[in-house]
Write a protein that binds this DNA or RNA. Structure first.
Length: 462
DNA sequence: TTTTGAGTTGTTCGA
DNA sequence: GTCGAACAACTCAAA
């Protein structure tokens, strides 16, 4: 075998790429291919931000390939047809790709595999989806035992990480020009690419991970790794992240390293949940909640999306999402609780909004997180666990820096009132240049009353 | 097969 | 202000 296609999807890196290495092992000539799939590009779960991140990421990858003598071949169309044509043009006799878990990816790869010589490798998760199972062979749907089992398996070692190849021969076929639009903002908080991802990982391990357990919930600080978009597109190998976390643990990073490793395990937990329960992508994992009587008020949804609910922490978070294409994890929980409980809006509306806006938008993790917040999922929060947006703000944005950063109209509101600005006396409102109902909205719901309504609605489900 | 312990991330109320 | 209990059962995982 002398020519192979390397079909990239969400493994946009050269380091520790198992599909690439399998292709190199089987052929002298490897053709890197990315297929712009109209079904994905036009999905209502995709927005300009993540598309821009993807396109910019493809350009970085193309540059990385050029440095090694190769380049990225971009094609557009239905994947099986595109790949069949490419096999024909290149004389390749196999396609190598990293296996993925979403229902669409499963179906797409089954269709390609039925017609063409597709060889799927692991890499999407550290432990293959089938490897983390209960003693009886079934799949886990509770996190803690899943994580215990995951940790009991042989950990990946630094020596096992696959190096990026030094050279790759240039492909002899042509592709499309790389798209330039939509473009990422110049000052994006998430410059794409493998080098950036690995630089961030290094910095986080050296400076952030030891404090992670204590700071990760603080919305006003940079206590998290901010690696999610890179893991989403495989610009960082999950295996490399786990190796780094374990090394940090050995170096005494303690609770921080353990907690961050747990987050990586959560990522794999939700991947295998979706793999084993594709139906959860479209409806509540817990059947009884499929009958929940959502209020689904479009005006409430609009206010939530725009960050105009009148609850500062909620609005700050949704504006952060709008601007950065990313939201702090604690904020994700708060706004998800607010949407599903306070506004009683179907979690799938929020899930779609997140998918449209998040650079790291991933079907498995996003769905898992939303169903957790809504209380409809695997290992979900009990339905009566309803976040109070005021106390969450006071606890995880104690000085209000997060709120002030994202909501300029609240910049001069005294700290005492910042998380509940409607409590400002009229005179204070004028002094702060923030009249409630004028400069900043009054709360669109009363949390106490909304909480009671949610409890009743959830309780009504048999 | 049955039993038993346990379960990401909270809030509110009343003593 | 602080603290423990209640919130609601249910289902999972493993012994």
């Amino acid at each position: 075998m002398s020519v192979a296609l390397w079909w990239l999807r969400r493994d946009l890196r050269l380091t520790d790429n198992r599909a690439l290495h399998a292709a190199l092992d089987s052929a002298r000539q490897v053709v890197p291919v990315f297929v712009l799939d109209p079904l994905l590009l036009e999905s209502s779960y995709v927005g300009e931000g993540r598309l821009a991140f993807l396109y910019a990421g493809l350009r970085v990858l193309d540059t990385d390939l050029h440095e090694r003598g190769s380049r990225l071949i971009l094609r557009r169309g239905e994947p099986a047809a595109v790949l069949e044509a490419l096999l024909d043009e290149t004389g390749a006799d196999a396609i190598f790709a990293e296996a993925d878990v979403s229902p669409y990816a499963q179906q797409r790869d089954a269709a390609v595999g039925a017609r063409l010589p597709l060889r799927l490798t692991g890499g999407r998760t550290v432990h293959p989806l089938g490897a983390v199972r209960k003693a009886d062979g079934g799949a886990y749907i509770v996190y803690s035992p899943y994580a215990r089992r995951w940790r009991s398996l042989a950990p990946p070692l630094r020596a096992e990480l696959l190096p990026a190849p030094d050279t790759l021969p240039a492909p002899e076929v042509e592709g499309l020009e790389l798209p330039t639009a939509p473009a990422l903002p110049e000052d994006t908080a998430f410059p794409p690419g493998e080098a950036e991802a690995r630089r961030r990982l290094k910095a986080f391990i050296e400076e952030g991970i030891a404090e992670y357990a204590g700071l990760r919930d603080r919305m006003d600080l940079e206590g998290t790794s901010r690696l999610s978009p890179y893991l989403r597109f495989g610009m960082l190998s999950p295996r490399e992240a786990v190796v780094a976390a374990r090394e940090a643990l050995e170096d005494g990073a303690g609770e921080g390293a353990r907690t961050w490793l747990d987050e990586l395990i959560w990522r794999e937990f939700y991947a295998q949940v979706l793999y084993h329960h594709p139906r959860a992508r479209r409806e509540s994992f817990r059947e009884k909640y499929r009958a929940l009587a959502w209020a689904n008020d479009p005006a409430d949804f609009e206010a939530w999306q725009q960050g105009h609910t009148g609850y500062p922490v909620v609005d700050a978070a949704l504006r952060q999402l709008r601007t950065l294409g990313w939201m702090h994890n604690r904020a994700r929980m708060i706004v998800a609780s607010f949407l599903t409980k306070d506004l009683l809006i179907d979690w799938r509306w929020g899930e779609r909004h997140f998918m449209q806006r998040l650079l790291d938008g991933d079907p498995a993790a996003n769905n898992g997180g939303w169903q957790w917040a809504a209380g409809t999922g695997t290992d979900a929060a009990p339905y009566f666990r309803i976040f109070n947006p005021v106390s969450q703000g006071k606890k995880y944005d104690p000085e209000g820096a997060y709120v002030r950063r994202w909501i300029p109209e609240l910049a001069d509101v005294p700290a005492k009132h910042l998380h509940e600005p409607w409590t400002m006396p009229e005179q204070v409102q004028h002094e702060a240049g923030c009249v409630i109902g004028d400069d900043y909205p009054a709360p669109i719901v009363d949390h106490g009353a909304a909480r009671e309504r949610a409890l009743a609605a959830y309780k009504a489900v048999v």
